[in-house]
Structure formats: structure tokens, C-alpha cells
Amino acid sequence: MPVRLKINGKDISADVDTRTTLLDLLRERLQLTGSKKGCDHGQCGACTVLVNGRRINSCLSLAVVHDGEEITTIEGLANGEQLHPMQAAFVEHDGFQCGYCTPGQICSAVACVKEGHAKSDDEIREWMSGNLCRCGAYPNIVDAIKDAVAKNA
């Protein structure tokens, strides 16, 4: 089935199996492997991408239902060589270890701030709990998000 998407600002047309998830389209067809598969069940958050600015689990979403929509993945956040402030803050605060949940954490964090859910440590912790980090770098993730908020303010 044909599908047209705008991914990281680029128009993409693809003919996809109706069973293909948005995540598998990104990773296996478009070689956008920044979005990660951590469970394929919508339970870990590693596949989080922004669809029309809203964070979703791309493994739980079929590619065909996003026809005409705007998708931002981790590959689309930086402005050329210039990291997005959230990416820079994750590096500075060591907000990861293995890095596998990181693209999802960062996409989720960008949306979390936009939603207005980053006004306190507790609020960040609650609204970022859909993104598991088995390495357990959570305190650094919270510090990174706070820093990114402060620098954007």
C-alpha cells in the first residue's frame, strides 16, 4: 500500500506491507536506525518518535495510518552540525550509558518540555517514566532535561 510521509523534513513515498509498523519502516526500509526496537510491544519507549509534534511509540503504530503526517526522529533533531539543546544536555550530563534508549528518551524529553510537563524534578520523572533506561541513568536524564529547559528559557 502506498504511503507518503514527511520524515525529518523530507518527503518520503513508500509502498509498504499494511502490517509494517512505523518503526520497522524507519529502521528496515529507510535505514533510519536511530529509532530503536527495545520490546516491539510499546512498553519500553526506545522507539519514541514525534508525529506532528506529539510523542508516540512507533512500534505500536502501523506505517499506513501516518499517511500525510510529519514525523521527526532522532536523526531530525540536530540543525546540521549543531546539536539540539536536548541532545547537547544529554551529552553534558551523561544522560545515558549504552545509548540504546537514548534516541527515545531525547524525543520524549523534547515533547515532554513542549507539553509543559517539565516544571519540576518530580514532574519530569513522572512524565518521562514511559521511557525505560535499564542502565539506570535516570538522575542524569532528569538533570539533562532541567538544563535544556533552563537554557531554552
Binding site: R27, L32, T33, G34, T73, I74, Q87, D94
Partner: peptide, 21 residues
């Protein structure tokens, strides 16, 4: 210091094993 592989990990450029299709 910050991790030398930090930039690769926050931009999605770091490739994990099953991503070398």
C-alpha cells in the same frame, strides 16, 4: 569529560549490531 561516543549516541548515528543490514 564527556563521552567520546556521546555525539553518536544522541544523534542516532551509533549503529548497533542488528542495524548493519
Amino acid at each position: 569529560r564527556n563521552r567520546v561516543d556521546g555525539r553518536a549516541k544522541v544523534t542516532g548515528a551509533a549503529k548497533y549490531s542488528v542495524e548493519f543490514t
